[in-house]
Design a protein around this nucleic acid. Sequence first.
RNA 1: GGUGAGAUACUCAAGUGGCCAACGAGGGCAGACUGUAAAUCUGCUGAUUUUUAUCUUCGAAGGUUCGAAUCCUUCUCUCACCA
Length: 403
Amino acid sequence: MSEQKINDALREIRRGTAEIIDEARLTALLKAYFEKGETYTVKAGFDPTAPDLHLGHTVLLQKLAAFQQYGGHIQFLIGDFTAQIGDPTGKNETRKKLLPAQIQLNAQSYKSQVFKILDPQKTTVVFNSQWINQLGAAGMLELTTTFNVARMLERDDFDKRHKAGISISISEFIYPLLQGYDSVHLKSDIEIGGTDQKFNLLMGRHLQRAYEVGKEQAVLMMPILEGLDGIQKMSKSLGNYIAVADAPNDMYGKILSISDTLMWRYYELLSSQTLDQIESLKIGVEEGSLHPKKVKEALAIEITTRFHSAAEAQAAAQEFQRVHAQSEIPLEMEEYTFEGAVWIAKALVDTHLTSSTSQARREIKQGSVKINQDKIDDEQLQLEAGEYVLQIGKRKFARIKVS
RNA sequence: GGUGAGAUACUCAAGUGGCCAACGAGGGCAGACUGUAAAUCUGCUGAUUUUUAUCUUCGAAGGUUCGAAUCCUUCUCUCACCA
Protein backbone atom coordinates (compact mmCIF):
# COMPACT_ATOMS: atom_id res chain seq x y z
CA MET A 1 0.00 0.00 0.00
CA SER A 2 2.45 2.65 1.15
CA GLU A 3 5.05 0.91 -1.00
CA GLN A 4 3.06 1.89 -4.07
CA LYS A 5 2.66 5.48 -2.86
CA ILE A 6 6.35 5.81 -2.24
CA ASN A 7 7.15 4.52 -5.69
CA ASP A 8 4.68 6.89 -7.32
CA ALA A 9 6.11 9.81 -5.38
CA LEU A 10 9.64 8.82 -6.29
CA ARG A 11 8.70 8.61 -9.93
CA GLU A 12 7.30 12.16 -9.96
CA ILE A 13 10.26 13.45 -8.01
CA ARG A 14 12.72 11.85 -10.40
CA ARG A 15 10.84 13.31 -13.34
CA GLY A 16 13.03 15.57 -15.44
CA THR A 17 15.93 15.54 -12.97
CA ALA A 18 19.44 15.62 -14.35
CA GLU A 19 21.01 13.87 -11.40
CA ILE A 20 20.15 12.78 -7.88
CA ILE A 21 22.80 12.21 -5.27
CA ASP A 22 22.01 9.97 -2.33
CA GLU A 23 18.77 8.56 -3.63
CA ALA A 24 18.70 6.17 -0.67
CA ARG A 25 18.29 9.13 1.67
CA LEU A 26 15.53 10.52 -0.52
CA THR A 27 13.69 7.21 -0.41
CA ALA A 28 14.10 7.03 3.37
CA LEU A 29 12.61 10.51 3.79
CA LEU A 30 9.61 9.65 1.64
CA LYS A 31 9.18 6.40 3.50
CA ALA A 32 9.19 8.18 6.85
CA TYR A 33 6.58 10.58 5.53
CA PHE A 34 4.21 7.97 4.16
CA GLU A 35 4.58 5.62 7.09
CA LYS A 36 4.97 7.95 10.06
CA GLY A 37 3.89 11.32 8.71
CA GLU A 38 7.30 12.87 9.32
CA THR A 39 8.10 15.90 7.20
CA TYR A 40 11.50 17.03 5.98
CA THR A 41 13.08 20.23 4.66
CA VAL A 42 13.97 21.04 1.08
CA LYS A 43 16.26 23.99 0.47
CA ALA A 44 16.51 26.02 -2.70
CA GLY A 45 18.51 29.20 -3.04
CA PHE A 46 17.61 32.19 -5.18
CA ASP A 47 19.55 35.22 -6.19
CA PRO A 48 17.94 38.52 -5.22
CA THR A 49 19.67 40.49 -7.96
CA ALA A 50 17.10 39.52 -10.56
CA PRO A 51 13.58 39.79 -9.18
CA ASP A 52 11.94 38.88 -12.45
CA LEU A 53 11.44 35.16 -12.62
CA HIS A 54 11.14 33.38 -15.92
CA LEU A 55 10.00 29.87 -16.70
CA GLY A 56 13.56 28.59 -16.34
CA HIS A 57 13.41 29.40 -12.64
CA THR A 58 10.04 27.78 -12.31
CA VAL A 59 11.48 24.40 -13.22
CA LEU A 60 12.93 24.38 -9.73
CA LEU A 61 9.73 25.75 -8.28
CA GLN A 62 7.69 23.01 -9.92
CA LYS A 63 9.95 20.45 -8.34
CA LEU A 64 9.61 22.13 -4.97
CA ALA A 65 5.84 22.06 -5.37
CA ALA A 66 6.09 18.35 -6.09
CA PHE A 67 7.99 17.88 -2.84
CA GLN A 68 5.29 19.78 -1.00
CA GLN A 69 2.82 17.13 -2.07
CA TYR A 70 4.94 14.46 -0.43
CA GLY A 71 5.78 15.93 2.95
CA GLY A 72 8.46 18.43 1.99
CA HIS A 73 8.70 21.78 3.76
CA ILE A 74 10.46 24.34 1.58
CA GLN A 75 13.29 26.55 2.79
CA PHE A 76 13.11 29.30 0.23
CA LEU A 77 16.47 30.94 0.63
CA ILE A 78 17.15 34.39 -0.69
CA GLY A 79 20.90 34.74 -1.03
CA ASP A 80 21.15 38.37 -0.10
CA PHE A 81 24.62 37.99 1.38
CA THR A 82 26.09 35.74 -1.27
CA ALA A 83 24.70 38.01 -3.98
CA GLN A 84 27.34 40.51 -2.96
CA ILE A 85 30.05 38.13 -4.08
CA GLY A 86 28.46 36.88 -7.22
CA ASP A 87 28.28 33.25 -8.09
CA PRO A 88 31.41 32.30 -9.99
CA THR A 89 29.34 29.85 -12.02
CA GLY A 90 29.37 31.05 -15.58
CA LYS A 91 30.20 34.70 -16.01
CA ASN A 92 32.61 36.55 -13.86
CA GLU A 93 31.64 40.11 -13.24
CA THR A 94 31.91 42.00 -10.03
CA ARG A 95 28.50 42.62 -8.66
CA LYS A 96 27.12 45.81 -7.36
CA LYS A 97 26.31 45.78 -3.73
CA LEU A 98 22.56 45.78 -3.28
CA LEU A 99 20.92 48.12 -0.84
CA PRO A 100 18.87 46.39 1.86
CA ALA A 101 15.78 48.24 0.69
CA GLN A 102 16.29 46.95 -2.82
CA ILE A 103 16.73 43.41 -1.56
CA GLN A 104 13.52 43.69 0.43
CA LEU A 105 11.74 44.93 -2.65
CA ASN A 106 13.08 42.10 -4.78
CA ALA A 107 12.15 39.61 -2.07
CA GLN A 108 8.59 40.87 -2.09
CA SER A 109 8.51 40.58 -5.84
CA TYR A 110 9.78 37.02 -5.52
CA LYS A 111 7.13 36.06 -3.04
CA SER A 112 4.25 37.31 -5.12
CA GLN A 113 5.50 35.31 -8.10
CA VAL A 114 6.65 32.23 -6.27
CA PHE A 115 3.45 31.60 -4.37
CA LYS A 116 1.62 31.11 -7.61
CA ILE A 117 3.35 27.75 -7.61
CA LEU A 118 4.31 27.00 -4.03
CA ASP A 119 2.03 26.45 -1.09
CA PRO A 120 2.83 29.27 1.36
CA GLN A 121 1.78 27.09 4.28
CA LYS A 122 4.64 24.75 3.54
CA THR A 123 7.26 27.37 2.73
CA THR A 124 9.61 29.41 4.88
CA VAL A 125 11.41 32.34 3.31
CA VAL A 126 14.85 32.96 4.77
CA PHE A 127 17.71 35.36 4.05
CA ASN A 128 21.25 34.08 4.41
CA SER A 129 22.66 37.41 5.60
CA GLN A 130 20.86 36.61 8.86
CA TRP A 131 23.32 33.94 9.89
CA ILE A 132 26.31 34.77 7.73
CA ASN A 133 26.62 38.20 9.27
CA GLN A 134 26.77 36.45 12.66
CA LEU A 135 29.75 34.38 11.57
CA GLY A 136 32.35 37.06 12.13
CA ALA A 137 35.97 36.84 11.09
CA ALA A 138 36.65 33.86 13.34
CA GLY A 139 33.68 31.95 12.04
CA MET A 140 34.65 32.76 8.51
CA LEU A 141 38.18 31.56 9.10
CA GLU A 142 36.87 28.35 10.60
CA LEU A 143 34.70 27.86 7.54
CA THR A 144 37.71 28.17 5.24
CA THR A 145 39.59 25.45 7.15
CA THR A 146 37.02 22.88 6.07
CA PHE A 147 38.18 22.86 2.49
CA ASN A 148 41.37 23.23 0.52
CA VAL A 149 42.52 24.91 -2.62
CA ALA A 150 43.37 21.74 -4.49
CA ARG A 151 39.83 20.46 -4.14
CA MET A 152 38.38 23.82 -4.90
CA LEU A 153 40.32 23.79 -8.14
CA GLU A 154 38.72 20.49 -9.03
CA ARG A 155 35.62 22.38 -9.77
CA ASP A 156 35.21 22.38 -13.51
CA ASP A 157 34.94 26.09 -14.22
CA PHE A 158 37.69 26.99 -11.74
CA ASP A 159 39.87 24.34 -13.30
CA LYS A 160 39.34 25.70 -16.78
CA ARG A 161 39.94 29.25 -15.73
CA HIS A 162 43.01 28.30 -13.74
CA LYS A 163 44.52 26.39 -16.64
CA ALA A 164 43.68 29.18 -19.03
CA GLY A 165 45.35 31.64 -16.70
CA ILE A 166 42.17 33.60 -16.13
CA SER A 167 42.00 35.23 -12.75
CA ILE A 168 39.95 33.72 -9.95
CA SER A 169 39.16 35.96 -7.04
CA ILE A 170 39.55 34.62 -3.51
CA SER A 171 36.01 35.75 -2.81
CA GLU A 172 34.85 33.34 -5.46
CA PHE A 173 36.32 30.50 -3.44
CA ILE A 174 34.26 31.72 -0.51
CA TYR A 175 31.02 31.60 -2.45
CA PRO A 176 30.51 27.83 -2.51
CA LEU A 177 31.54 27.65 1.14
CA LEU A 178 28.91 30.16 2.16
CA GLN A 179 26.26 28.46 0.10
CA GLY A 180 27.17 25.18 1.75
CA TYR A 181 27.12 26.82 5.15
CA ASP A 182 23.52 27.79 4.52
CA SER A 183 22.72 24.09 4.52
CA VAL A 184 24.56 23.68 7.82
CA HIS A 185 22.57 26.45 9.43
CA LEU A 186 19.25 25.32 7.99
CA LYS A 187 19.95 21.62 8.61
CA SER A 188 18.43 20.93 5.20
CA ASP A 189 17.44 17.36 4.33
CA ILE A 190 17.43 17.96 0.61
CA GLU A 191 18.75 20.75 -1.59
CA ILE A 192 17.74 21.25 -5.15
CA GLY A 193 19.34 23.41 -7.80
CA GLY A 194 20.39 23.54 -11.43
CA THR A 195 23.05 21.21 -12.81
CA ASP A 196 25.40 24.17 -12.98
CA GLN A 197 25.18 24.27 -9.19
CA LYS A 198 26.51 20.77 -8.64
CA PHE A 199 29.70 21.79 -6.94
CA ASN A 200 27.94 24.23 -4.64
CA LEU A 201 25.24 21.71 -3.80
CA LEU A 202 27.78 19.05 -2.92
CA MET A 203 29.53 21.56 -0.73
CA GLY A 204 26.41 21.54 1.42
CA ARG A 205 26.90 17.84 2.05
CA HIS A 206 30.58 18.29 2.76
CA LEU A 207 30.00 21.08 5.27
CA GLN A 208 27.12 19.34 6.99
CA ARG A 209 29.57 16.52 7.65
CA ALA A 210 32.37 18.86 8.71
CA TYR A 211 30.10 20.73 11.12
CA GLU A 212 28.59 17.48 12.37
CA VAL A 213 25.04 18.43 11.64
CA GLY A 214 24.11 14.79 11.93
CA LYS A 215 22.85 14.41 8.41
CA GLU A 216 23.95 15.03 4.87
CA GLN A 217 21.50 16.56 2.48
CA ALA A 218 20.39 14.66 -0.56
CA VAL A 219 20.99 16.66 -3.71
CA LEU A 220 18.67 16.89 -6.63
CA MET A 221 19.72 18.67 -9.79
CA MET A 222 17.40 19.98 -12.44
CA PRO A 223 18.53 20.56 -16.01
CA ILE A 224 18.74 24.08 -17.35
CA LEU A 225 15.63 24.88 -19.35
CA GLU A 226 16.21 25.76 -22.97
CA GLY A 227 14.87 29.12 -24.10
CA LEU A 228 12.44 29.81 -26.90
CA ASP A 229 15.15 29.09 -29.48
CA GLY A 230 15.46 25.57 -28.08
CA ILE A 231 19.24 25.74 -28.03
CA GLN A 232 20.56 28.20 -25.52
CA LYS A 233 19.49 28.29 -21.93
CA MET A 234 16.56 30.47 -21.09
CA SER A 235 17.86 33.75 -19.82
CA LYS A 236 16.84 37.32 -19.70
CA SER A 237 20.02 38.59 -21.31
CA LEU A 238 19.55 36.30 -24.30
CA GLY A 239 16.00 37.51 -24.68
CA ASN A 240 14.69 34.00 -25.24
CA TYR A 241 12.62 33.84 -22.11
CA ILE A 242 9.06 33.75 -20.94
CA ALA A 243 8.71 35.84 -17.82
CA VAL A 244 6.37 34.85 -15.07
CA ALA A 245 5.14 38.44 -15.20
CA ASP A 246 4.51 38.38 -18.96
CA ALA A 247 1.03 39.44 -20.00
CA PRO A 248 -1.31 36.52 -20.80
CA ASN A 249 -1.26 37.22 -24.53
CA ASP A 250 2.54 37.29 -24.65
CA MET A 251 2.91 34.21 -22.51
CA TYR A 252 0.47 32.26 -24.61
CA GLY A 253 2.00 33.39 -27.90
CA LYS A 254 5.55 32.68 -26.81
CA ILE A 255 4.71 29.14 -25.73
CA LEU A 256 2.99 28.51 -29.03
CA SER A 257 6.11 29.63 -30.86
CA ILE A 258 8.37 26.91 -29.48
CA SER A 259 9.27 24.00 -31.70
CA ASP A 260 7.38 20.73 -31.47
CA THR A 261 10.42 18.98 -30.03
CA LEU A 262 10.95 21.60 -27.37
CA MET A 263 7.30 21.32 -26.45
CA TRP A 264 7.87 17.89 -24.89
CA ARG A 265 10.75 19.22 -22.90
CA TYR A 266 8.51 21.95 -21.53
CA TYR A 267 5.85 19.40 -20.75
CA GLU A 268 8.28 17.34 -18.76
CA LEU A 269 9.75 20.22 -16.80
CA LEU A 270 6.90 22.69 -16.50
CA SER A 271 3.57 20.94 -16.80
CA SER A 272 1.61 19.67 -13.82
CA GLN A 273 0.24 16.86 -15.96
CA THR A 274 1.33 13.47 -14.69
CA LEU A 275 3.87 11.43 -16.57
CA ASP A 276 1.14 9.03 -17.68
CA GLN A 277 -0.98 11.82 -19.09
CA ILE A 278 1.96 13.22 -21.03
CA GLU A 279 2.81 9.79 -22.36
CA SER A 280 -0.69 9.40 -23.76
CA LEU A 281 -0.39 12.78 -25.49
CA LYS A 282 2.84 11.64 -27.11
CA ILE A 283 1.26 8.46 -28.34
CA GLY A 284 -1.68 10.43 -29.74
CA VAL A 285 0.64 12.67 -31.76
CA GLU A 286 2.71 9.76 -33.02
CA GLU A 287 -0.41 7.93 -34.16
CA GLY A 288 -1.66 11.05 -35.85
CA SER A 289 -4.87 11.15 -33.87
CA LEU A 290 -3.77 14.29 -32.06
CA HIS A 291 -2.51 17.41 -33.82
CA PRO A 292 0.74 18.72 -32.29
CA LYS A 293 -0.66 22.20 -32.33
CA LYS A 294 -3.52 21.09 -30.08
CA VAL A 295 -1.04 19.66 -27.61
CA LYS A 296 0.96 22.87 -27.68
CA GLU A 297 -2.17 24.92 -27.15
CA ALA A 298 -3.02 22.83 -24.11
CA LEU A 299 0.41 23.53 -22.67
CA ALA A 300 0.09 27.24 -23.39
CA ILE A 301 -3.28 27.28 -21.67
CA GLU A 302 -1.97 25.40 -18.67
CA ILE A 303 1.02 27.67 -18.14
CA THR A 304 -0.90 30.87 -18.78
CA THR A 305 -3.59 29.77 -16.34
CA ARG A 306 -1.00 29.07 -13.70
CA PHE A 307 0.36 32.60 -13.70
CA HIS A 308 -2.84 34.42 -14.56
CA SER A 309 -6.26 32.78 -14.61
CA ALA A 310 -8.25 30.32 -16.64
CA ALA A 311 -10.39 33.14 -18.03
CA GLU A 312 -7.36 35.17 -19.10
CA ALA A 313 -5.75 32.14 -20.66
CA GLN A 314 -8.88 31.44 -22.69
CA ALA A 315 -9.02 35.06 -23.76
CA ALA A 316 -5.37 34.91 -24.83
CA ALA A 317 -6.07 31.77 -26.86
CA GLN A 318 -8.99 33.42 -28.64
CA GLU A 319 -6.96 36.56 -29.22
CA PHE A 320 -4.15 34.54 -30.72
CA GLN A 321 -6.62 32.81 -33.00
CA ARG A 322 -8.03 36.16 -34.11
CA VAL A 323 -4.73 37.85 -34.78
CA HIS A 324 -2.64 35.04 -36.22
CA ALA A 325 -4.95 32.48 -37.72
CA GLN A 326 -7.48 34.96 -39.09
CA SER A 327 -5.17 37.98 -39.45
CA GLU A 328 -7.56 40.25 -37.65
CA ILE A 329 -6.62 43.04 -35.36
CA PRO A 330 -6.39 42.44 -31.62
CA LEU A 331 -9.17 43.60 -29.35
CA GLU A 332 -6.97 45.73 -27.18
CA MET A 333 -4.06 47.88 -28.15
CA GLU A 334 -2.34 51.06 -27.16
CA GLU A 335 -4.19 54.23 -28.06
CA TYR A 336 -2.72 57.57 -28.98
CA THR A 337 -4.20 60.86 -30.02
CA PHE A 338 -2.75 63.47 -32.33
CA GLU A 339 -3.82 67.00 -32.97
CA GLY A 340 -3.88 67.98 -36.60
CA ALA A 341 -2.76 65.93 -39.57
CA VAL A 342 0.27 63.78 -38.87
CA TRP A 343 2.95 62.32 -41.08
CA ILE A 344 2.78 58.52 -41.12
CA ALA A 345 6.45 58.03 -40.19
CA LYS A 346 6.11 60.35 -37.24
CA ALA A 347 2.97 58.57 -36.09
CA LEU A 348 4.83 55.25 -36.17
CA VAL A 349 7.60 56.67 -34.03
CA ASP A 350 5.29 58.37 -31.56
CA THR A 351 3.29 55.19 -31.09
CA HIS A 352 6.55 53.30 -30.40
CA LEU A 353 5.96 50.95 -33.29
CA THR A 354 9.36 51.92 -34.65
CA SER A 355 12.42 53.38 -33.00
CA SER A 356 13.15 56.10 -35.54
CA THR A 357 11.69 57.76 -38.58
CA SER A 358 14.41 56.17 -40.68
CA GLN A 359 13.27 52.78 -39.45
CA ALA A 360 9.67 53.78 -40.20
CA ARG A 361 10.62 54.67 -43.77
CA ARG A 362 12.32 51.33 -44.21
CA GLU A 363 9.30 49.48 -42.87
CA ILE A 364 7.04 51.34 -45.29
CA LYS A 365 9.39 50.61 -48.16
CA GLN A 366 9.32 46.93 -47.25
CA GLY A 367 5.56 46.91 -47.24
CA SER A 368 5.16 45.91 -43.64
CA VAL A 369 3.08 48.89 -42.57
CA LYS A 370 -0.67 48.66 -42.68
CA ILE A 371 -3.35 51.19 -41.88
CA ASN A 372 -6.73 49.69 -41.08
CA GLN A 373 -5.45 46.40 -42.51
CA ASP A 374 -4.49 47.95 -45.85
CA LYS A 375 -0.88 47.88 -46.90
CA ILE A 376 0.58 51.30 -47.68
CA ASP A 377 3.60 52.28 -49.74
CA ASP A 378 3.60 56.06 -49.59
CA GLU A 379 6.27 57.33 -47.23
CA GLN A 380 4.90 60.82 -47.43
CA LEU A 381 1.40 59.90 -46.39
CA GLN A 382 -0.33 62.39 -44.12
CA LEU A 383 -2.99 61.08 -41.79
CA GLU A 384 -5.97 63.42 -41.76
CA ALA A 385 -8.54 63.63 -38.99
CA GLY A 386 -10.10 60.31 -38.08
CA GLU A 387 -9.36 57.04 -36.33
CA TYR A 388 -6.84 54.53 -37.61
CA VAL A 389 -5.27 51.25 -36.62
CA LEU A 390 -1.57 51.31 -37.41
CA GLN A 391 0.19 47.99 -37.81
CA ILE A 392 3.71 46.78 -38.48
CA GLY A 393 4.07 43.15 -39.29
CA LYS A 394 1.75 40.76 -37.55
CA ARG A 395 2.46 41.66 -34.01
CA LYS A 396 2.69 45.38 -33.52
CA PHE A 397 -0.45 47.45 -33.37
CA ALA A 398 -1.57 50.86 -32.19
CA ARG A 399 -4.82 52.74 -32.43
CA ILE A 400 -4.61 56.44 -33.13
CA LYS A 401 -7.05 59.30 -33.21
CA VAL A 402 -6.23 62.33 -35.29
CA SER A 403 -8.21 65.43 -34.61
C1' G B 1 56.84 46.81 -10.50
C1' G B 2 58.68 45.49 -15.85
C1' U B 3 57.45 44.20 -21.03
C1' G B 4 54.08 43.60 -24.84
C1' A B 5 49.10 43.51 -27.19
C1' G B 6 44.52 45.66 -27.78
C1' A B 7 39.86 49.16 -27.51
C1' U B 8 35.37 49.28 -34.44
C1' A B 9 27.85 49.51 -34.65
C1' C B 10 23.31 44.91 -30.11
C1' U B 11 27.44 40.80 -29.89
C1' C B 12 31.65 38.61 -32.35
C1' A B 13 34.77 40.40 -36.03
C1' A B 14 37.12 42.66 -41.04
C1' G B 15 39.15 47.16 -42.38
C1' U B 16 46.11 50.16 -41.69
C1' G B 17 45.05 57.71 -45.73
C1' G B 18 40.12 58.75 -50.29
C1' C B 19 36.00 53.42 -53.65
C1' C B 20 33.75 53.67 -45.47
C1' A B 21 27.73 54.62 -42.43
C1' A B 22 32.26 50.98 -42.54
C1' C B 23 33.19 43.27 -45.32
C1' G B 24 31.37 38.95 -42.85
C1' A B 25 28.80 36.04 -38.98
C1' G B 26 25.29 35.86 -35.08
C1' G B 27 21.17 38.41 -33.15
C1' G B 28 16.93 41.54 -34.21
C1' C B 29 12.91 43.35 -37.53
C1' A B 30 10.08 42.54 -41.92
C1' G B 31 8.23 39.78 -46.55
C1' A B 32 6.86 34.88 -48.65
C1' C B 33 5.35 30.26 -46.91
C1' U B 34 3.01 27.50 -42.67
C1' G B 35 -1.02 24.27 -37.80
C1' U B 36 2.28 28.28 -34.98
C1' A B 37 5.39 34.18 -33.24
C1' A B 38 8.47 26.85 -35.57
C1' A B 39 11.53 25.43 -39.99
C1' U B 40 13.09 27.35 -44.78
C1' C B 41 14.05 31.20 -48.44
C1' U B 42 14.51 36.67 -49.29
C1' G B 43 15.18 41.79 -47.80
C1' C B 44 16.44 45.39 -44.09
C1' U B 45 19.32 46.54 -39.73
C1' G B 46 23.32 55.00 -37.34
C1' A B 47 20.15 59.41 -37.59
C1' U B 48 17.30 63.22 -40.27
C1' U B 49 10.37 64.95 -44.00
C1' U B 50 17.55 67.87 -48.05
C1' U B 51 16.26 60.51 -48.47
C1' U B 52 20.53 58.58 -55.55
C1' A B 53 20.94 64.19 -50.16
C1' U B 54 22.73 65.92 -45.39
C1' C B 55 24.56 65.09 -40.46
C1' U B 56 26.87 62.14 -36.48
C1' U B 57 29.78 57.54 -35.49
C1' C B 58 35.17 53.29 -35.21
C1' G B 59 37.75 54.12 -26.33
C1' A B 60 38.54 60.02 -25.02
C1' A B 61 40.83 64.68 -26.21
C1' G B 62 44.02 67.21 -29.34
C1' G B 63 47.15 67.34 -33.97
C1' U B 64 49.01 66.28 -39.27
C1' U B 65 46.33 66.33 -44.16
C1' C B 66 42.57 68.95 -49.55
C1' G B 67 40.82 64.30 -47.07
C1' A B 68 41.59 59.88 -41.13
C1' A B 69 38.43 54.12 -38.29
C1' U B 70 43.30 54.18 -40.66
C1' C B 71 49.29 58.58 -39.39
C1' C B 72 51.23 61.52 -34.73
C1' U B 73 50.70 63.14 -29.31
C1' U B 74 48.53 62.74 -24.57
C1' C B 75 44.95 60.38 -21.60
C1' U B 76 41.45 56.39 -19.98
C1' C B 77 40.41 51.38 -19.80
C1' U B 78 41.13 46.05 -20.84
C1' C B 79 44.20 41.82 -21.58
C1' A B 80 48.65 38.67 -21.87
C1' C B 81 53.66 37.42 -20.38
C1' C B 82 57.47 38.19 -16.63
C1' A B 83 58.28 39.43 -11.31
